[in-house]
């Protein structure tokens, strides 16, 4: 099998790599680039732990080949904070206790980001639908939904985080 030379743009930075065509984006991010914030759970599209943004849209990175993401703008959880300052969605997850073991959190937060980018004032139902591709085995979802609602209000400038 011929290896492919490709360039992945992740969180604004270009990375050159040589990889097998069958390498998934999740593998490339975690194993080649060392960006282990992206998690892998089921590997078949069911759990959403591997969610990243590709050109602003959420995808399951376990079901995208690394080469399919070449030339596109990839955002992982590592790209959300501004230096030491957490993104308002991350702040809200901490503030609301929406993180327990944390395995689902990177994917959950990126799904929330895509949702709020497209719909800055979602209803509770829209939040639940927006997060429907992300499973959480710990929180029971309620605190996650509250965190996203609260982050939406912060991002709309209706409240400030202390």
């Amino acid at each position: 099998m011929n290896k492919l030379a490709l360039t992945l743009n992740v969180n604004g930075q270009d990375y050159d790599l040589l990889c097998e065509p069958s390498r998934t984006l999740a593998q490339a991010l975690r194993e080649d680039l060392g960006l282990t914030g992206t998690k892998v759970g089921c590997g078949v599209g069911d759990c959403g732990a591997c969610t990243v943004l590709v050109d602003g849209q959420t995808v399951n990175s376990c079901l995208v080949l690394a080469t399919q993401a070449a030339g596109k703008a990839i955002v992982t959880i590592e790209g959300l904070a501004d230096g030491p300052k957490l993104h308002p969605i991350q702040e809200a997850f901490v503030e609301h206790g929406a993180i327990q073991c944390g395995f689902c959190s990177p994917g959950m937060i990126l799904s929330a980001k895509a949702l709020l980018d497209a719909n800055p004032a979602p209803s509770e139902l829209e939040i639940r639908q927006g997060l429907s591709g992300n499973l959480c085995r710990c929180t029971g979802y309620q605190k996650i939904v509250q965190a996203v609602d609260s982050a939406a209000r912060t991002l709309r400038g209706e409240r400030t985080v202390g």
Binding site: G45, G48, T51, Q57, T58, V59, L63, A114, L115, G133
Partner: peptide, 9 residues
């Protein structure tokens, strides 16, 4: 169809 992530693909 599926989830938002699946629909995008």
């Amino acid at each position: 169809l599926g989830s938002p992530q699946v629909r995008n693909r």
